[in-house]
Simulated assay, not measured.
Amino acid sequence: MKEGRSVRVSWDQVFAWRLRRQFVTPCGEIDVTDIVERMCGVQAQVTAAADLAVALRRRTPEPGALLPELASGTLMKTWAMRGTLHALAPEMAAAVLSLIGSARTWEKPAWQRTFGASPAQVAALADAVPQVLDGIVLSRDELVDALVADPAFHRLGEELRSGWGALLKPLAWQGALCHGPAQGNRVTFTSPAHLIRGWRGLPDPDAAAPVAITGYLGAYGPATPEIFDAWLSRNSLKKTTVRRWFSELGDALTEVDIAGRRAYILTEHADELEAVQPPRTSVQLLGAFDQYVLGPGTGDSELLPAAHRARVSRAAGWISPILVVDGRIAGTWEISGDDLSVATFDGSLPPTRDLKAAAEHVAEAMGHNGFAVHVA
């Protein structure tokens, strides 16, 4: 880590810097792939939410712009951070999959009891799937039918067909499969080598770590090794290993003091962060599962007041659309017909002009004519 320099910043500066780095404000004429790359991926459990996350970061939103990039292989969709589906740039995908896979969560007794597959069976699947998917795209049923035709996998058919993909995730984390182009409502799978031109497989974790860590800090910093691992794997990796990866980055990282909290930023961004002047007023509406909250995590009480966390992080893993005021999450919103309703945490009313502009941007990003805005 870079020594001999003390960088002290406020949370207002941190949030203003993140809003810029994540293309939330100001928006620009930015390519879809550049947005996804900067964000280290966008969560794509709900495709419409991923598309909205990208559209809202463009000055001139283009609804549906994400899907063509996934279909062409410019981006890939696969199970990645925290076991959830993400749209990712190929280099970042290879890096994070390598790190997530290094945790070997499928070898833990609790995982085996829950999903009924031994490490040997997962290893056999990881060998078989690339052969089945070599040069082709298959639906889930077609892939599973091909696998269970082998007696060694026959009893795994039910878990392989599960919509949650629990038994397929370890295969994704080992680079054996990824999602293929959508066929209507049908999920498809293929091999990364078939989808991505020039795919080189997964790097060694020690080689992958600098790519993932610097990418993450470039969008969500300053952060600690523990926060990075919570984003990546829900803290499934060994703490000593993650700390070593940070330490080995040496002078590429600079320690930052944020109101007494110690964290790290990329050294190349330290001056920019220190010089940031927070805007007088900043109001944004971001969609469900947005990376602005998922990057640092809903447990960050500076970003999201702990008393209101349950209103954002809801049952079954649902992350609500959020109102962001001056970089902090200040409420949630929802759409019903032509109405966009905002519920603030403390009852305060954001500037009407700014809120209306944010709602107009949402409407444009969704291909809607416009919403009537209501605030509770």
Rank of each mutant, 00 (worst) to 15 (best):
R113K: 07
S162H: 09
D145R: 01
L160S: 06
Q174R: 15
A117I: 07
Q183S: 14
L133H: 02
K169I: 00
I227D: 14
G184Q: 10
S118F: 08
L143N: 04
G116A: 06
P225M: 15
Y220Q: 07
A212F: 03
V122N: 11
R234V: 05
D150E: 10
Y220T: 13
A117E: 03
S118N: 11
A124T: 11
W111A: 03
Q174I: 11
R200D: 10
L147M: 05
N185D: 14
V129K: 09
G184Y: 11
L125H: 07
R234F: 04
A166C: 05
D229C: 05
F189K: 08
V129I: 09
A172F: 01
S191L: 08
T114K: 15
R140E: 07
P130A: 13
P192R: 03
V132N: 00
R161W: 09
H154D: 07
P203G: 01
W231E: 03
T188C: 08
P192E: 10
I213V: 13
A209V: 01
N185H: 10
L232W: 05
R234T: 09
L147I: 08
G157V: 00
A182I: 09
L171A: 08
S191D: 07
V129F: 06
R197Y: 12
L125A: 05
E158L: 11
Y220N: 12
V132W: 01
P170L: 10
R161Y: 06
A208F: 04
I136T: 15
S118R: 13
L143H: 04
S191E: 12
A208C: 12
G135K: 10
H154G: 08
V187A: 06
N235K: 09
A152N: 02
Q112T: 03
A128W: 15
Q174H: 12
A124P: 13
T214F: 02
L156R: 00
P192F: 12
E142Y: 03
P170G: 02
L156N: 00
W199I: 09
A212C: 07
E226T: 06
Y216V: 03
P210L: 03
D150H: 12
W231C: 03
L167E: 00
S233E: 12
A152D: 14
